[in-house]
């Protein structure tokens, strides 16, 4: 068999082994690569952080996904919740997917264990699962009255009786709706809630959908976006740079620290809060590997084509 031909016919299982090793090795021996922050993620952080400590404003996170995309989206959710808990930002959570609701419980309890002062229904409130058939009615209903539209939290308590609802009436009191999604990039929110009630919408999406958000970022229909593990890593980093130190956001400082210095020290940060950043090392290695695959595959293709041509001429 010719070299070019053997290149073309390489058993796919060898490729699988190389990919697996390219993920495992950098995870065990981290490269300590930097995480650069980008504008769409910085915009989200700035906007959410602007309501730190306010009683009349909250953010709403819509967990619009199931466990299949958790490795990409869960670190975003953890970073967002952590940001809210550190900076005393009122937080609401909701899911229109049955398998999204337990993810809310998981994420809230995972972060809450580090914040004993944070109380359910006072500092945050989980609306829980609402059937998909009610998505549009609830999205629209919250524009008039959140307590009336959602009615109960995940434990079945009436929203209007909860302390967190004091000074919270409708979207006027929602700083931003964050949809964390593996299927639509905020579509229902920017189609129904934003034009009618003017609420700001942001998204955390799987990287597959990240490129599709740009037209909506330009028009302002989406205020910002986190794309895949990279977006999660950026948000994790911003929380560490600013919220953890009690600092207000500044773009200059974000760029100075995130871009200028060496990798921000991860040693004192619990594993769950740096998961995305650790993963980005392996991500970088595999990206280079895939590019190599493309190049080698194409070399094999062109060599093979040339050999075929020569054979034909002879």
């Amino acid at each position: 068999m010719r070299f070019s031909e053997s290149l073309q016919k390489l058993d796919r299982r060898y490729i699988y082994i190389v990919v697996a090793l390219a993920v495992i090795i950098p995870l065990i021996f981290p490269l300590g690569l930097k995480t650069y922050t980008t504008t769409p993620v910085e915009d989200l952080y700035r906007h959410i952080d602007a309501i730190a400590g306010r009683d009349d404003k909250a953010i709403l996170i819509d967990f619009y996904h199931d466990p299949s995309v958790m490795p990409e989206l869960y670190p975003m959710e953890i970073a967002l919740i952590r940001h809210c808990f550190i900076r005393k930002i009122k937080l609401f959570t909701i899911s229109f997917w049955p398998t999204g609701a337990p993810i809310i419980e998981m994420a809230l309890s995972e972060v809450k264990e580090d914040f004993p002062d944070i109380k359910a229904n006072v500092d945050y409130c989980n609306f829980g699962f609402k059937p998909n058939a009610l998505t549009i009615p609830i999205i629209l209903g919250m524009g008039d009255d959140i307590a009336k539209a959602v009615e109960t939290n995940s434990e079945g308590s009436k929203l209007e009786d909860l302390p967190i609802m004091k000074n919270i009436k409708n979207y006027d009191n929602i700083q931003i709706v964050m949809q964390i999604s593996g299927s639509t990039s905020g579509y229902l929110w920017y189609t129904y809630a934003r034009p009618r009630f003017g609420v700001d919408v942001g998204v955390g999406v799987t990287a597959v959908m990240a490129a599709d958000t740009y037209p909506f970022l330009q028009t302002g229909q989406l205020l910002g976006s986190m794309g895949g593990l990279k977006g999660a890593a950026e948000y994790e980093k911003l929380v560490d740079i600013f919220a953890m130190k009690g600092l207000d956001y500044s773009k200059k400082k974000a760029r100075d620290i995130a871009w200028g210095s060496k990798q921000y020290s991860l040693s004192n940060i619990p594993y769950k809060y740096k998961k995305a950043r650790i993963g980005m090392d392996a991500q970088a290695v595999v990206h280079v590997l895939i590019i190599l695959f493309i190049v080698i595959g194409n070399i094999g293709y062109f060599l093979d084509k040339r050999a075929e041509k020569r054979k034909y001429v002879k």
């Binding site: 495992i24 593990l229 993963g279 595999v286 895939i290």
Partner: peptide
């Protein structure tokens, strides 16, 4: 990027 991220999560 998305597919690799999912694999990283599991590994």
């Amino acid at each position: 990027m998305a597919r690799i991220s999912l694999l990283i999560g599991r590994i």
